[in-house]
C-alpha cells in the first residue's frame, strides 16, 4: 500500500469518526433540551436558544475536523 493510499484511508476514517462524535454530542444535547422543555414548557424559548448555541459550537468543531479530512484527501 502506498503512503498516498493511507492518506485517503485516514481522511475517510477521520470524517467518519468526527461525524460519530458530532452525532453523539448533538443527540445528547437534543435529548436534554427536549426533556428540559418538557418539564418547563414556559422556558422552551430559552432552552431552544441555548441548545442552538451549543449545537453551533459542536457543528463548528465538526466542520473543523472535516476540513482537515478534506485537506488530507486533496493533498
Amino acid at each position: 500500500m502506498e503512503s498516498l493510499g493511507l492518506g485517503y484511508l485516514a481522511a475517510g476514517i477521520g470524517a467518519g469518526v468526527s461525524i460519530i462524535g458530532a452525532g453523539l454530542g448533538i443527540g445528547k444535547l437534543a435529548a436534554a433540551a427536549m426533556e428540559a422543555s418538557g418539564r418547563q414548557p414556559e422556558a422552551a424559548g430559552q432552552v431552544r436558544t441555548s441548545m442552538l448555541i451549543a449545537a453551533a459550537l459542536i457543528e463548528g468543531a465538526t466542520f473543523f475536523a472535516l476540513a482537515i479530512c478534506i485537506i488530507l484527501a486533496t493533498k
Binding site: L52, A55, L57, I58, E59, G60, F63, A67
Partner: peptide
C-alpha cells in the same frame, strides 16, 4: 424562522480557520 439566524454560526468558525 426562529432557528435561521443560528444556522450559519457553526460553519463560520471552521470557515474562519480555513
Amino acid at each position: 424562522r426562529s432557528v435561521a439566524p443560528y444556522l450559519t454560526l457553526g460553519i463560520q468558525i471552521a470557515a474562519a480557520v480555513v
